[in-house]
Deep mutational scan, measured.
Amino acid sequence: KILMCPEHETERINMYCELCRRPVCHLCKLGGNHANHRVTTMSSA
C-alpha cells in the first residue's frame, strides 16, 4: 500500500521524522514543518 502525505496529497510518504515520530514526504522535509528535523528512510524506521 502506498501512503500519501496528508499535507501534500499528491506526494508519497517516503521518510520518517524522528523528532515528531511521524511519516513525512520530501516536501515536508524541504520546506515544511520538518525542514530542520532529523529524518530517516521509511525502511529504516
Rank of each mutant, 00 (worst) to 15 (best):
K1G: 04
K1L: 03
K1N: 08
K1R: 04
K1P: 00
K1Q: 04
K1T: 06
I2M: 09
I2S: 05
I2A: 06
L3E: 15
L3Y: 11
L3D: 14
L3S: 11
L3F: 10
L3W: 04
M4T: 09
M4A: 05
M4I: 09
M4R: 06
M4Q: 06
M4K: 10
C5E: 01
C5F: 00
C5Q: 00
C5L: 00
C5V: 00
C5G: 01
P6I: 05
P6R: 07
P6V: 09
P6E: 11
P6W: 03
P6K: 13
E7H: 12
E7L: 07
E7W: 03
E7P: 01
H8R: 00
H8S: 01
H8Q: 01
H8M: 00
E9W: 03
E9M: 08
E9C: 09
E9Y: 09
E9Q: 09
T10L: 07
T10W: 04
T10D: 07
T10Q: 13
T10G: 09
T10C: 09
E11R: 01
E11L: 05
E11Q: 09
R12P: 15
R12I: 07
I13M: 14
I13V: 03
N14G: 06
N14S: 10
N14T: 15
M15C: 15
M15T: 09
M15Q: 04
Y16F: 10
Y16E: 05
Y16D: 08
Y16Q: 03
C17G: 01
C17P: 01
C17A: 00
C17W: 00
C17V: 00
C17S: 00
E18H: 03
E18D: 15
E18Q: 09
E18G: 07
E18T: 06
E18W: 05
L19G: 14
L19K: 14
C20H: 01
C20I: 00
C20L: 01
R21P: 03
R21W: 03
R21D: 14
R21C: 08
R22K: 14
R22I: 05
R22C: 08
R22Y: 04
R22M: 06
P23S: 09
P23R: 06
P23D: 13
P23M: 05
P23I: 03
P23L: 04
P23Q: 08
P23K: 07
V24F: 15
V24C: 08
V24D: 02
V24L: 07
C25M: 01
C25E: 02
C25P: 01
C25N: 02
H26G: 14
H26T: 05
H26N: 05
H26L: 06
H26A: 14
L27S: 12
L27G: 07
L27W: 05
L27V: 10
L27N: 12
C28M: 01
K29F: 12
K29T: 11
K29E: 14
K29V: 12
L30N: 14
L30H: 09
L30T: 15
L30F: 05
L30S: 14
L30Q: 14
G31E: 08
G31T: 12
G31H: 09
G31V: 09
G31R: 10
G31L: 04
G31D: 08
G31P: 04
G32Y: 03
G32E: 15
G32W: 04
G32N: 05
G32D: 12
N33W: 06
N33H: 10
N33P: 15
H34E: 04
H34P: 03
H34R: 02
A35M: 08
A35P: 06
A35Q: 10
A35R: 07
A35G: 12
N36C: 11
N36T: 11
N36D: 12
N36R: 06
N36M: 08
N36S: 10
N36P: 11
H37C: 11
H37L: 04
H37V: 07
H37P: 05
H37S: 05
R38M: 12
R38F: 07
R38S: 13
R38D: 14
V39E: 13
V39M: 13
V39G: 14
V39S: 12
T40K: 08
T40H: 07
T40I: 04
T40C: 09
T40P: 12
T41M: 07
T41F: 05
T41G: 12
T41L: 06
M42T: 15
M42D: 13
M42I: 04
S43A: 12
S43F: 03
S43M: 07
S44L: 06
S44N: 10
S44A: 13
S44P: 13
S44W: 04
S44D: 14
A45Q: 05
A45M: 05
A45C: 02
A45V: 08
